[in-house]
Design a protein around this nucleic acid. Structure first.
Lengths: 235, 235
DNA sequence: CAGTGGTCTAGACCACCAG
DNA sequence: TGGTGGTCTAGACCACTGC
């Protein structure tokens, strides 16, 4: 077995995508159709498709089929641009959906970060964000409502940085970021409508006010093919 | 099919690892052994193992078996610490192996970045880096030898930042970083001794001198389970 | 050499989505 | 309701590792 069969298949679709005979968003033939055409079983087909998925060239939506991935958006955290802004600037169309919003008692980590007693209320916000109608990101945030009284009455599908600026004359300043490439936890995969266990990118972000208080702790779960992170370090 | 069989298996090993009945570096039973024990076929076993791999809990080495992953090392690029230093500080044991070193003509991207004509010589360096004897990272670097005359005579398994400091009184300063979660390209997977198509983390890093000249362009290919990236943004 | 993972066949049934 | 991907069986042979 010099080169495996799935490798040829990968190459085949890879070439179709590179030459734009398959464009972002278009649907691949069904696994069974591909199988007929190449005289291969579904196991082999799926190996090739999963590899292409890992490369970020294609993605699937549960039981709907396989699709060609759009270009990844570039996330530049140091720029402090909002999701809506940087997605728009790159020629895509962002949208946001609120999945949950509630007052919650702070757990240990959140309490420690926000310097409040464990169990004190924080605002929990759970959102799903889309690029060109494709869900790409699940966001779970814990907001320090002591610093932002009345924040829960705002329209929280809006950009938070907009709300901060308008209502509180606050801006995002310092932040701590942590990135990890890992599979999406089941809850995030479900929210994104994909099978659990698929590769993803997890980000933890802690946002500080200009007085070094913790404004917000943010957990983001990205489709791994949807984003590239750029950072410029200037001492 | 309420919860799939592979899910139970995942949970089983996940629990063993969490409770430290399986410790980092230890070998899992063979796929066939697991199959006997749980009355499952290898296809199902492998689905569970691949999911655990995507989570970063286990890893494999080509035809040698599956092993429990060690804790990820934390890479803090803004600290300017060398690989050797930050790995050591976190209680692991780093090592470096030089796979190739040669003078090469600069390609377009490198030439543009280094502000030299295309085809001018640059020093290419290809290294493999280990944490506790596990290969975790392939590095391909292009070094601006105009700024570092005689660099090619140094021992290039050493920390480059050490060499810079000692021989050239230079230090790493500004850098541009780009991260992407994607599968490892075939060359990198081969060098790491793992099957192609496995998830990985790709980093492009451009290092500048204090005079904003490009000192070095660095491409890193990490095992995705081996690293977490932390960055503090302070304006 | 025996044992490991890597690849593959030829089926099957299920859960979910769309028309 | 027909078609999709998701899961799974029960095999097989190959390439490589380690003894």
């Amino acid at each position: 077995m010099s080169t495996p069969h799935y490798h040829h298949l990968q190459q085949y679709f890879s070439d179709l995508i590179a030459s734009q005979q398959l464009v972002p968003g278009s649907k691949l033939p069904s696994e069974r159709k591909i199988g007929e055409q190449f005289k291969l079983t579904r196991v082999t087909i799926r190996q090739a498709l999963k590899n292409l998925e890992a490369e970020g060239l294609i993605y699937r939506q549960n039981r709907r089929g396989w699709f060609v991935s759009p270009a990844a958006v570039i996330y530049h955290p140091a720029s402090h641009l909002s999701f809506n802004l940087y997605v728009t600037e790159q020629g895509f169309s962002p949208s946001t959906e609120k999945l949950a919003q509630q007052i919650e008692p702070a757990n240990e980590r959140i309490a420690q970060l926000m310097n409040i007693p464990v169990g004190n209320p924080v605002l929990y916000l759970h959102r799903r964000r889309y690029i060109d109608q494709r869900p790409v990101l699940i966001e779970k945030m814990y907001i320090n409502q002591n610093l932002l009284p009345g924040i829960e009455e705002e329209d929280l599908t809006e950009s938070l940085s907009q709300i901060l600026k308008r209502k509180y004359q606050q801006e995002y300043r310092d932040m701590d970021l942590s990135f990890k490439s890992t599979s999406l936890p089941a809850h995030a995969a479900n929210d994104l409508g994909i099978a659990a266990g698929q590769p993803g990118l997890q980000i933890e972000r802690i946002n500080y006010t200009s007085h070094k208080q913790v404004l917000e702790v943010d957990y983001e779960f990205w489709r791994h093919d949807a984003v590239t992170i750029n950072i410029a370090i200037r001492d």
